[in-house]
């Protein structure tokens, strides 16, 4: 198709290296048999063993998974409903531009601003009820807030790839509203819903800034833990932890990739 210029390939490989070197470095050091220093001393898995025995880490891991799961569930429902409500009904075209704007705001706004705004919101809500003290609740609520848009966008994209003909065909074939929704609409957007959920889950697992501003002492997540460790002093356990985190977050991504390519 095109002539292959070696320099293009070179830069391509260099770029890939640039992106992967950090992760590979962490992985390598996670199996390095050395407590301090960065010289290679031999292969070992003992840091992973220590990992599992570390209470704080296990706590943080449980928190992270819990928050991710709960927030994903809530955000998937809300996000799907949002996409359906906005894009499956006849709104005037001016409304559509407004919707696009609203849905895209959390995606474009820098996360630090969202983190701050959410912290502010919780401070205000705390006046109403104590459940809004910084803790699990605020963490989950914060995560849901930024996840909704992403789920909605994925589902919206799926909705838009389905034309009106499939719906009309269903009606032409005697489908009632319920039958139509259950047998046509839902199955067709299901890949989008799952992809959106995977996306939301990963975003939650990876989130640092928003969690950092909106967590409580009993709701530390892994990214926060790792960050604190950097300040305290890095240990090989942390490398093991990071490597584990990397591997675990890769799984939903690959699933979601598969799903968004199907139809």
């Amino acid at each position: 198709m095109k002539q292959k210029r070696p320099i293009v390939a070179l830069i391509a490989f260099f770029s890939m290296a640039l992106m992967y070197v950090p992760s590979i470095a962490v992985a390598v050091f996670s199996v390095n048999d050395a407590i301090y220093g960065l010289t290679w001393r031999g292969f070992t898995l003992r840091w992973y063993q220590k990992l599992i025995q570390n209470e704080y880490i296990i706590d943080a891991a449980i928190n992270t998974l819990f928050v991710a799961t709960v927030s994903t569930l809530i955000a998937t429902v809300l996000g799907t409903a949002l996409a359906l409500g906005l894009y499956r009904f006849p709104w005037p075209p001016s409304c559509h531009r407004l919707f696009d704007l609203v849905i895209n705001i959390p995606v474009v706004v820098p996360d630090i601003i969202m983190a701050v705004a959410l912290a502010l919101a919780f401070n205000a809500l705390r006046l109403l009820s104590k459940t809004f003290d910084m803790g699990m609740v605020t963490l989950v609520v914060a995560h849901v807030t930024f996840q909704i848009s992403f789920v909605a966008l994925v589902v919206k994209s799926r909705l838009e790839s389905l034309g009106p003909e499939t719906d009309e065909a269903a009606r032409d074939l005697y489908a009632s509203s319920f039958f139509h929704f259950r047998r046509v609409t839902l199955p067709l957007i299901r890949p989008g819903i799952i992809a959106g959920a995977m996306l939301a889950f990963t975003l939650s697992l990876d989130d640092f800034i928003i969690s950092f501003f909106n967590h409580g002492p009993d709701s530390i997540t892994l990214p926060i833990f790792i960050y604190a460790s950097i300040k305290r002093g890095l240990t090989p356990e942390i490398h093991a932890l990071s490597t584990a985190v990397l591997i675990v977050t890769a799984i939903p991504i690959i699933i979601a990739e598969r799903l968004t390519r199907k139809f």
Partner: peptide, 15 residues
Amino acid sequence: PFWTNVVVRAYAWLL
């Protein structure tokens, strides 16, 4: 790499 935690990637460079 898109999905790799920012914190992890940043501190990796420290290494």
